[in-house]
């Protein structure tokens, strides 16, 4: 099953590289990419338009790679939060990563100035981590972090931060379109810089989450049962929340707030592969990556030369597909 998902992801990536608002012949795309490989590349004739090389290597490729990484992170973190909180409504943003990031980004954009503009991803990342730290310490009581506290503290902090974002947009009297656009999320204009900046955190956080599959399976039975099975529950919570949030914070800081993927991809994957986190976690990562790569391709080519926000595509395509699976599943899916 995982193999099938990986194949699907690879296929989507190839389509994404081959298709765009500018029609680059598929043969040229292949040659441009192969020419970059060591040894083989030197034997190839460079017979394509220079602009096309620019488009494939500098504009399109980093977008595809970034969409895959962000999609994988959102799918994986969503599955982790749903499992940890034992709540089907949970998603990677449920305990405040996105609103913290939004506040950081909005502050940077409201300050104006070239330096602040360039710092938007950094500010978003910092805001996300700060809000998670705040939620986690607010939820702590007597050396433990009850999951319900975590959820409620997350919701309260999220609302508070969102209000601050709205207030900034109302009171700073700048053009609010950049902020709105950032909030909607997307990969337009992202390059290798963003890939290099976000991937280390997404990979590190993602690997830690993947390694916690056994703890998540145990936690599904309830905290007491997990403890009896020898799981250090409090430590597992801290590790999972920390790792999933770190990865999500990095994803959000380079892509804005892309909704829906982190909520629905784990459900879709669970319907297909079952609830065992050893398969569910990597499955959600692969499915999230495939969905977002596909959605971003649609966003790029649906309405040329215009682009549409990728969040619109994920919800428009993913929503009906999810409902279809839900109807077909007949039995209880959660």
């Amino acid at each position: 099953m995982l193999l099938a998902l990986a194949t699907l992801l690879a296929a989507f990536c190839l389509v994404a590289l081959g298709r765009g608002a500018v029609a680059v012949p598929v043969g040229d795309v292949a040659r441009i990419l192969v020419a970059r490989l060591p040894l083989v590349g030197d034997r190839l004739l460079t017979a394509w338009a220079a602009g096309h090389e620019q488009i494939v290597l500098v504009v399109r490729a980093p977008r595809v790679v970034l969409a895959a990484g962000v999609g994988a992170t959102l799918g994986l973190s969503g599955a982790a939060f749903q499992g940890l909180l034992r709540n089907p409504m949970a998603d990677p943003y449920v305990i405040g990563v996105s609103s913290g990031a939004a506040l950081g980004a909005t502050v940077a954009m409201s300050l104006g100035g070239g330096l602040a503009r360039g710092l938007v991803p950094v500010a978003a990342f910092g805001g996300a981590l700060a809000s998670i730290a705040a939620v986690y310490s607010l939820a702590r009581s007597g050396g433990r972090v009850p999951l319900l506290n975590l959820l409620l503290a997350g919701i309260a902090v999220s609302s508070f931060l969102s209000a601050l974002v709205s207030a900034l947009m109302v009171f700073t009297h700048r053009d609010v379109r950049p902020v709105l656009f950032w909030l909607m999320g997307g990969f337009g204009g992202r390059g290798w810089f963003h890939v290099l900046a976000a991937y280390p955190y997404m990979l590190a956080g993602g690997l830690v989450v993947l390694a916690s599959a056994r703890e998540l399976n145990a936690l599904l039975l309830g905290e007491d049962s997990a403890r009896q099975l020898g799981v250090d529950v409090e430590r597992a919570k801290l590790v999972l929340v920390g790792a999933a949030s770190l990865a999500t914070a990095a994803a959000v800081s380079v892509s804005g707030i892309i909704g829906f993927v982190g909520l629905v991809v784990p459900h879709i994957t669970r319907l297909v592969v079952g609830a065992d986190h050893r398969i569910l976690l990597p499955g959600s990562a692969l499915a999230g990556a495939a969905l977002l790569v596909m959605a971003d391709t649609v966003a790029r080519i649906a309405l040329p030369p215009a682009e549409i926000p990728v969040g619109i595509v994920t919800a428009l395509v993913g929503g009906p597909f999810f409902l279809y699976l839900l109807r077909r599943a007949h039995s209880r899916f959660w």
């Binding site: 500018v22 602009g51 488009i55 337009g188 790029r300 040329p304 030369p305 215009a306 549409i308």
Partner: peptide, 18 residues
């Protein structure tokens, strides 16, 4: 952007480079 079907829209970076 004379080929844009909308009065205001986000332009494709690929198309801009092309």
């Amino acid at each position: 952007a004379e080929g844009l079907g909308l009065p205001y829209a986000q332009y494709s970076l690929e198309v801009l480079i092309e």
